[in-house]
Structures are given as structure tokens and as C-alpha cells.
Amino acid sequence: MKDRDTTHFGYREVDKDEKAGLVAGVFDSVASRYDLMNDLMSGGIHRLWKRFTIELSGVRPGHSVLDIAGGTGDLAAKFSRIVGETGQVILADINYAMLAVGRDKLVDHGLSENLEFVQADAQCLPFPDDSFDCITIAFGLRNVTDKDLALRAMLRVLKPGGRLLVLEFSKPKNPLLSKAYDAYSFSVLPVMGRLVAGDSDSYRYLAESIRVHPDQETLKAMMEDAGFARVEYHDMTGGVVALHRGVKA
């Protein structure tokens, strides 16, 4: 009786066709307060995680960069300054509400000349093969229905020698930290979500989706299976977050 094609949505098991709509509902609900919630939830540390991602990207002037699930454009804004007039940055997100917030923010900061905004699904990227020097996906992969399909799509649009960087919540290595992190995620986050974004369910989903996301070694193996070479990862903040990097051979 288990012939349904299912996937996780937090702790719930849902039809694969259903997940994208459910995730869209989460982000439609939190888009306007997304940046504020990120700062509150992480105590501002998400900026350091993103900064380290940019350092490891090796992006230089003239490069073309695709920021998938780029949301409100934190990474895209930095990349836009680094690649300069001769480079190009594409901020892609499946969710229109998030993309609209990101586009407004970046345009307000005077960043638009080398930036493009594309509403796109990470599983079927609407770009030609070998298009980008670097692809980043920060806190987005766990929301993708078919992660293997998405990783293969990223590999296809990367130029040979190009890098994929996956910044995502992961599994803390220290058992004490892990317990504290669980208590924080399931007790504090939903309350914070209700008070600030008026939506506790979305932040409960955030905590659940992190727990069912592959751990560091599993994601590394998934990237290798998808065809990435020289895959490595860096744990940050005790493994609460991990940055995986792979190269298209």
C-alpha cells in the first residue's frame, strides 16, 4: 500500500507533488519578516555563516554567479559587489514573495546593474549547460522536494571547474549542544515566530525540516553521487550549520 511517491514536509510525510505548495505557503507567510527573523533566531550569526560562504566561493570580478533559493538577497548583494561590472549575478527563488522582497531590497541598495531576478525551481533550472562559475544555495536545499534532482541540475549549469556551495543546517556533533539546540528549536523558535512574524507553524516546520535534512556525511555522499568532485564540508557553530563545497570536474 506504499506505492505513493512521498517526501518529508517537516515530520509529516506528504505526496511529492504536494511539498512545493506547502513550502510556498511557509515562505509566503514569512517573507516580509524573513530578515528580521533570521537575525533574531541566529543572534546575527547567519551573517558570519554567509560571509564564510562568500570567502570559500572564490568568486572574482567577471564571474557569473547563481544564487539559488536566494530569498532576500544577502549573498547576491555581496556577490554583485565582488563580480563588478564585468560579472553577473542571478538571484533565483521558487517563491515569488521572497524574490519580490529580495529584489526590492537590492534595488533600494542601488544594486541592479549586474543582477537578474529569476523565479525558478532548483530541480529544473532554466539555464543552458555550463553557464556559471559558482552556484550557492543557502538554507534552501532542505526545502527542495527532490534534492538529488536539484544537485544534478546544479551540476549541469555549472561551468567545468565551477563550484557549488551548499550552506545548510546540519547535525551538531556535541550531544550537549545538540540537546540545547533541540530545546531552542522546538520551544523558543515557534514562540518567536508567533510574536514577530505572526506564524508559529512556519517556524515549527523550520525546526522539523532541519531534523529530517541529511547530516554532513550523507549530504557529502549525495553531492558525490550527483557527480561533484573534491567534495568537502566545514562545520560551523559546532555543526549547527555546515558548508559543503563541490567542484564540477
Binding site: 558570519l48 555563516w49 564564510f52 570567502e55 566545514h234 562545520d235 560551523m236 557553530t237 559546532g238 558548508l243
Partner: peptide, 8 residues
């Protein structure tokens, strides 16, 4: 040092 501390 940890990447987070170093970056901070």
C-alpha cells in the same frame, strides 16, 4: 580556530 569565530 572554528570558521565562525575566525570569521567573526
Amino acid at each position: 580556530v572554528s570558521p565562525t569565530l575566525h570569521t567573526a
